[in-house]
Design a binder for these strands. Structure first.
Lengths: 242, 242
DNA sequence: ACAAAAGTGTTGCCCTTACACCCATGC
DNA sequence: GCATGGGTGTAAGGGCAACACTTTTGT
């Protein structure tokens, strides 16, 4: 537990006091990684092996190195804990309630990440050391710290994204049917959508295209689509700003 | 300057290492406070009296106390430096480039704030100690740290807000004319708007109403409007989440 | 043949946009 | 009486929501 001398340091004008005089919080990154498999929207969680919250499930994440940009810290932690790199990752929100970690003041910069379903399959293999599992977002176990709140906020962000930037396909494998894509939207937004309107709207955006291939199943085969390279570039550009 | 032992601390599984073993960055809050006066969108800046960036203009802000929530730190810093409380304040983004502060690793949680024009007038009186001034966002001086980048990002956020949540009135005094409100939108969005369409759209949202009073000026008097209590509650509810 | 999911068009409504003139006041 | 900003309505087009039947396969 970090010793806290309450309010001994009421702040003054910018830089009036030497920076070294201020007590320093710990800073972590936590990543909410979504994917969509077996008809479920899922989040990756890791079971903690040490106190506090030993045995509880928690978001992947960890301490930020002192010389490391935040985005890089998030990418690194995710790589270390899932073996996956090069995925969609953006800053979500910073949670800094003084009581959120029993060890003392720990501020966490939460990140929002999306992984395709096929990459998620591979991930599971890499789970050798740490116990990592995908959980249905709507059926989570007891979580460590304030991680449930963080996930709920990430879910709100995901809904916003799907509503007006067509990124649903990032959750799916490279090739997918329109029905699968519609199911993603329905599960994430928690509402039923009209098939004809959905198809028209998605196709009008020009971000996915017919691959020419078909998926054969129990009934009439379905056309397989994949997203266009333009769509990915467009999103990268949008996200480049802050 | 903070001593940094590069990568001596490659992270491991959650909590595997004692939290105390990690070097701690400093954490600050910085506030981008907007108002609209004399036909200009303005940001409040404070002139630094100490190194680094002595004499440069910078965003109001300062170190987060060890036992203080982030939102409260932002509100406190703003109060200490402007004497104003109870204004619109929300978290913007966390900037953590290791090079952003020459003193060492300083992570800043940036906040986005809006102040009404009449409150902004009063603020100026409270500027006894620190040199604080309002600057046109489109004509800023050289800024300390990465504060120019932070302001640019806040401006993007402000544009989003005006585009689909009608918060423009928060920048204006309690009573205002529709022409004034339109000017706010035009200056923020940097585009010319159609007078009739603008009025129809704003009034359709039901967030402002005719006060029954008139403003007399050089020409035909203009109706004065004020926002409805419902509008404020609605926004508070929206903002309650994260 | 039948069960099951894939696929496909049209219509009405609303919201958005474009656009031009009269009104009330100060000087 | 004239200059100036305040104030108002309408028509066309585009996007969105509602709605039901045919097609293709596996069994």
């Amino acid at each position: 537990m970090i010793a806290v001398s309450k309010s001994s340091l009421s702040a003054q004008e910018n830089g009036a006091k030497s920076a070294d005089a201020y007590p320093r919080p710990l800073v972590t990154v936590d990543i909410v990684l979504f994917t969509f498999t077996e008809g479920e929207l899922r989040v990756l969680l890791i079971q903690r092996k040490h106190p506090p919250f030993e045995g509880y499930w928690a978001l992947p994440g960890g301490f930020v190195n002192i010389d490391e940009p935040l985005d890089q810290a998030a990418a690194r932690e995710l790589f270390e804990e899932t073996g996956v790199s090069n995925i969609y990752l953006e800053q979500l929100y910073t949670f800094g309630d003084p009581q959120r970690d029993p060890r003392g003041r720990v501020i966490t910069v939460a990140y929002f990440a999306i992984m395709s379903a096929d990459a998620a399959e591979k991930t599971r293999a890499g789970d050798d050391a740490a116990a990592a599992r995908w959980f249905n977002v709507y059926d989570l176990p007891s979580l460590a710290f304030d991680h449930e709140r963080i996930i709920k906020y990430a879910l709100v962000r995901l809904r916003y994204k799907l509503e007006y930037t067509a990124l649903g396909f990032l959750l799916l494998p490279e090739e997918f049917t329109l029905s699968e894509l519609q199911q993603v939207y329905e599960v994430v937004l928690q509402e039923r959508l009209d098939k004809r309107n959905f198809r028209r709207k998605i196709l009008a955006q020009g971000i996915i295209e017919d691959s020419g291939r078909l998926r054969y199943g129990d009934h009439r085969p379905a056309k397989l689509y994949h997203f266009t390279a333009a769509a990915i570039e467009l999103e990268k550009a949008r996200r480049r700003f802050p």
